[in-house]
Design a binder for these strands. Sequence first.
DNA 1: AAATCTCCGATTGTCGACAATCTGAGCGAA
DNA 2: TTCGCTCAGATTGTCGACAATCGGAGATTT
Lengths: 226, 226
Amino acid sequence: MLLKEPEQGTLADVAAHRLAHSIVTGELAQGQKLNEAELAESFGMGRGPLREALRHLEGMRLVKRIPNVGARVVVLDRKTLSDLYAVREALEGMACRIAAVQMTDDEIAQLSGLLDKHEEQIRQDGGKVYSQSEGDLDFHYQIVRGSRNEMLMHLLGSEQYQLLRMCRYRTSRNAQRTRPALLQHRQIVAAIANRDGELAELLMRRHIQGAWRSISEMIDKEEKAA
Amino acid sequence: MLLKEPEQGTLADVAAHRLAHSIVTGELAQGQKLNEAELAESFGMGRGPLREALRHLEGMRLVKRIPNVGARVVVLDRKTLSDLYAVREALEGMACRIAAVQMTDDEIAQLSGLLDKHEEQIRQDGGKVYSQSEGDLDFHYQIVRGSRNEMLMHLLGSEQYQLLRMCRYRTSRNAQRTRPALLQHRQIVAAIANRDGELAELLMRRHIQGAWRSISEMIDKEEKAA
DNA sequence: AAATCTCCGATTGTCGACAATCTGAGCGAA
DNA sequence: TTCGCTCAGATTGTCGACAATCGGAGATTT
């Protein structure tokens, strides 16, 4: 759902998706060198399609390329994540405000249902934050879709979110934030259901700010440990 | 300044820049088919680099590619531009608020100087909206730079703005908005100089909303004419 | 020993040719 | 006439090979 059809279309697209997955899950470490010939070999394709895939990932900011030197997996330092969350706050805040006007009652009910499923998941296995994260992304993406803004959907859905998912995989150990997050999600849906765009935006911005604080603390700990 | 070094680096980069320029200036019409062999020939390069360039432009949303069919120049319809301006409003509003805190006094003075130069230009040749547009983009980009947010700079500066420039070339006939725009720019700078982030954001949002109304009316006229 | 230079292996950049696929014209049937 | 089918022509997708460039090991100089 978040990662489109993996095995279809051009080889370059397949490579891009597989690479994106490997990077997001951490299978490919941050800063790791990406050897064209090697990867092409492992994917069973020529270097041409693979180079196109790298260009694509470069556009997604998942890899950084330097001419005549090569491509490396991007490194998510504090500054990068801080910037990302600031952009998210602005963009998703706007999405929320518009979604409160644009979403149909059906879509809102569906969104609420997503949270029910989500809650059930947390109740069942309190530790599986992984699926929570994916579900959380689904939640956010549904709202973005509700804004009917194609550019936003592309910006957040298809591209930027990969960075977020990458970040999640890195910091998915702390489960303690899932419950307050769920509550905040409920409040956001309630605001949208009331067609209160301003409140929905405010709540979403706070929600994202809270997520950033949480991530930020975690980075602090990691840095202190190192 | 807005278009990086044209003739250096890999051929794919050269092709991407030249194509971007041709698209933005309208030299390549909207919706026009982009033939790989043809373009590669005209640029004096093989199809490999050109394909990479197309991938890049696809990421910039300047072209739309369909597997096994080819690439076409994107068409800027009302919906696309509306979405673009909504995103701009959120992003540049945020940039303004942060820039009001982060910019140095030097940078603010420089920004003010840019407007002086800008005013002088308007006084000299009241009709040359072209250079006004470029200068306007410079103004907006300077503020984005002032936010110190790398992601924002990449999003607005290197990529999204090409779409804007494309739009400007299309609708650059109406010069009557340059003077109020300049005034609004001055007010924004004043707010930033006072370190009033909230006001700066508000003014920038209004400024962009005004620009959108202007563009929107122009599209209406065009549609009525057609 | 430290710094610099030189050269070689490895990697990226580029090209040309071939295979796969789509588009559209022309033909035939309902 | 209109619809569907077939089949070239053109265009995209892919590969393998060659040229250009970079990084690093080792030798040389101070």
